[in-house]
Design a protein around this nucleic acid. Structure first.
Length: 713
DNA sequence: CAGGGCCCGT
DNA sequence: ACGGGCC
């Protein structure tokens, strides 16, 4: 078995070598548009994890909090705290009582209203996406990024900018470590961008898959990054003391594994697949085993706009329908407001409750859901909020009575209201499904056909217009310094490795540090970050555009969705700092400007040109080496994206230049197509959907949509 | 056990 | 439509 897989590895290695040579050759010699992209067997995946996220946001809002031990309180729990507090023994998820005992000076800020955290979280994701759109969110403070294509692009540039020139092919196979090294530079640059533009610090993990990137990202905290070289994968995995450390193995799974006598990851690695399959079924068993070996081929999937919006509150006890009704109404009010700002129209409403039961059943929730009548949905998105709430409330109560027998006493500890099945505005207007339906099943078939044929013209007519910078935009500097190679023994990290990870003596990792980076230099030019523009997206034929209904036109142009993300909702839970100027654009921290260290004169200067200096020590102006500028490549065409995260005919470069709200709209569309994608193509993710794979246009087809604006693959 | 979310299986 | 599980 081992031998087999090794042979396969070798085969892959050789094919990859050939592919790599091909790519470099194609890019250097044949110029753009050849895009004979290999299936990358070795991806470069980044995992970003912001340091004590909520605490950072509060410290940005109120810089005075930086110097004090700060805890973020939700109900009776400290959900996170800054590092000053951690030095004094406060930890995440500690009870307020315990925390105050450990650290009487602890300053507490209420963190139940997530508005500010949510906003900052999306700023983070959008910033990353502006560099390369293949970004997946995990909670509010983590992001995965597949930078394989960026790395290959840089590789090509490096090869090309070489002083020597070769005739013909060059046998110059980059090792996985080389690719990861480039990935680590990208990670450092992105972290620097996040810090300079948003004022946030965080950690990054660089590895060949999501599992490993996430596993190592927190190895050195805070504000550092860690690269895992392929040689050390088995060491890392083998040293994990508990299966719980493996992302994807939660409490329940860990318990079931323990019942099988499996506690450490090593146990899991050595457990026969059959034994596992008996308890978990074959697919899950395989996945668990793979995870235990550090194998994870799950793709980074663009997250896009959220699939649902919800609001909830927990409490000690609620036992009367009157209370329930009032609380529900209150939750609905804020949820409806959020929904209206989002712009989409929910089709489904769900009510979730948690009943108190003496058993350890504190946890489990139950829910009921129902469709939202169209007239109510209209009121939500058209801003007749009070009416909407008033009409939703009886719906909610109906659902409530389905779960609770009000004849008998009851005891609730939580209520949650949720909108899901979100449809875009354009779709809602046409009365059908998603925006897709305009093209495929519009009320007027003729019109739809006309647009379709126009769209076909778009396909064939463009292909130039690729001269926007991309990929290296904002990252046109490179660090000359070699990353420090450290082994565990010599590494004097500021925090002991968590995860129960232990480096073997000779297992070297690449560690790049960025300490002392004060979060206070957050000044930045609003114009610069505002990537929402009121122009026609690239590669959209103006002629075609004119044919579209006004709604769709507006939707394509309006940054409504983005604005909604940043507009402040009146927070009823009196957190200090009153909201200042209500600019619609990504107001880049009116707050933080006041906190900036007044030494950002230089910062502001070079914010117009994007040659920001990458400094891994985090201290300004101390870099010994002038940073080298990487030549911007004008007509270089992007290789197609590796997996099917993007539909094959979508050029990431083009995509990245679209206004964020259009990006979100598109990604939302792709997500809805995913079921189709999955059933039409087999499990192998290497294959992208071509037009042949989709259903022919006609009734019930979801085939035709904004894809048409992109060049064919 | 806080407040959100997302995905999966049935 | 719901529950379970994971972050």
């Amino acid at each position: 078995e081992m031998e087999n897989s090794e042979d396969e590895e070798d085969e892959n290695e050789w094919r990859n070598i050939r592919d790599m040579v091909t790519v470099v050759h194609a890019m250097c010699v044949s110029g753009p548009s050849i895009s004979k992209t290999p299936v990358p067997a070795h991806k470069v995946i980044l995992h970003f994890d912001l340091d004590c996220f909520y605490a950072q946001v509060e410290m940005i809002r109120n810089p005075a909090l930086r110097e004090v031990p700060l805890g973020i309180q939700q109900k009776y729990i400290i959900v996170t705290c800054n590092y000053v507090a951690r030095e004094r023994g406060v930890n995440k998820l500690m009870s307020v009582t315990d925390a105050k005992e450990k650290c009487p000076e602890l300053v507490l800020v209420k963190g139940e209203d997530l508005t500010h955290y949510r906003e900052m979280s999306y700023k983070m994701t959008e910033l990353l996406m502006s560099y390369y759109p293949l970004v997946e969110r995990l909670g509010f403070d983590e992001n995965f990024m597949d930078v394989t294509e960026m790395v290959e692009q840089r590789l090509a540039q490096i090869v090309k900018s070489e002083d020597f020139s070769f005739k013909g092919h060059v046998y110059n196979h980059p090792s996985k470590s080389h690719l990861l090294a480039l990935g680590s530079h990208i990670a450092a640059e992105l972290r620097e961008a996040v810090h300079s533009k948003l004022g946030l610090t965080g950690c990054a993990g660089i590895a060949t898959n999501k599992l490993l990137a996430k596993l190592v990202s927190g190895t050195f905290k805070p504000n550092q990054q860690t690269t895992l070289l392929p040689e050390n994968i088995s060491d890392i995995m083998g040293c994990l003391s508990s299966v719980r450390k493996v992302p994807g193995v939660g409490h329940q799974t860990a318990k079931r594994l323990q019942a099988l006598g499996l506690v450490s990851v090593k146990d899991l690695q050595l457990c026969p697949l059959n034994d596992l399959a008996k308890e978990f079924g074959s697919p899950t068993a395989q996945r668990l085993k793979s995870l235990s070996l550090g194998v994870d081929d799950s793709p980074v999937t663009c997250t896009g706009a959220p699939q649902s919006l919800s609001d909830e509150d927990s409490f000690k006890k609620m036992s009367s329908t009157k209370e329930v009704s009032e609380k529900t109404q209150q939750l609905l009010s804020s949820l409806v407001e959020r929904m209206r700002k989002d712009g989409r129209q929910p089709q489904t409403f769900r009510l979730t409750i948690r009943k108190y039961t003496t058993a350890n059943k504190w946890f489990s929730r139950e829910s009921r859901q129902c469709p939202i009548p169209n007239h109510i949905g209209q009121k939500i998105s058209s801003g007749i909020s009070d009416d909407a709430v008033m009409q939703l409330l009886p719906l909610a109560m109906k659902l409530f009575y389905r779960m609770v027998d009000c004849g008998a006493p009851f005891h609730l500890t939580l209520i949650n209201v949720c909108f899901s099945n979100l449809q875009s505005r354009a779709a809602a207007v046409t009365g059908k499904g998603s925006i897709t339906s305009f093209f495929s099943q519009s009320t007027s078939p003729k019109k739809s056909q006309a647009v379709l044929s126009q769209c076909q013209c778009v396909d064939s007519s463009q292909g130039v217009d690729m001269d926007h910078q991309f990929g290296t935009d904002g990252m046109i500097t490179q660090n000359n310094k070699q990353p420090a190679i450290q082994s565990s023994s010599s590494s004097s990290s500021s925090e002991a490795p968590l995860h129960g990870l232990r480096w073997k003596q000779n297992s070297a990792v690449i560690v790049e540090e960025t300490r002392n980076a004060s979060c206070s230099t957050a000044g930045c030019d609003p114009d610069e970050t505002a990537n929402a523009v009121t122009r026609l997206p690239p590669n959209v034929d103006p002629e075609v555009f004119k044919l579209l209904p006004e709604d769709i036109q507006k939707e394509l142009l309006s940054p409504a969705y983005v604005s909604s993300l940043y507009s402040t909702s009146s927070s009823q839970s009196g957190t200090d700092v009153p909201s200042t100027s209500k600019s619609k654009l990504p107001e880049t921290l009116t707050d933080s400007e006041s906190i900036s260290d007044t030494k950002d004169a230089a910062n502001k200067l070079n914010s117009s040109n994007r040659a920001t200096t990458v400094n891994h020590q985090g201290k300004a102006g101390t870099s010994a080496f002038p940073e080298e500028e990487v030549m911007e490549e004008g007509g270089l065409s992007f290789p197609r994206l590796s997996d099917c995260e993007f539909p094959g005919n979508v050029d990431p470069k083009v995509f990245s230049e679209l206004p964020p709200d259009v990006q979100r709209e598109l990604m939302s569309e792709w997500k809805q197509q995913k079921p189709i994608l999955k059933t039409s193509s087999s499990k192998k993710p290497g294959k992208s959907l071509t037009s042949k794979d989709r259903k022919a246009p006609g009734k019930g087809s979801q085939a035709n949509n904004l894809f048409k604006y992109f060049k064919p693959s």
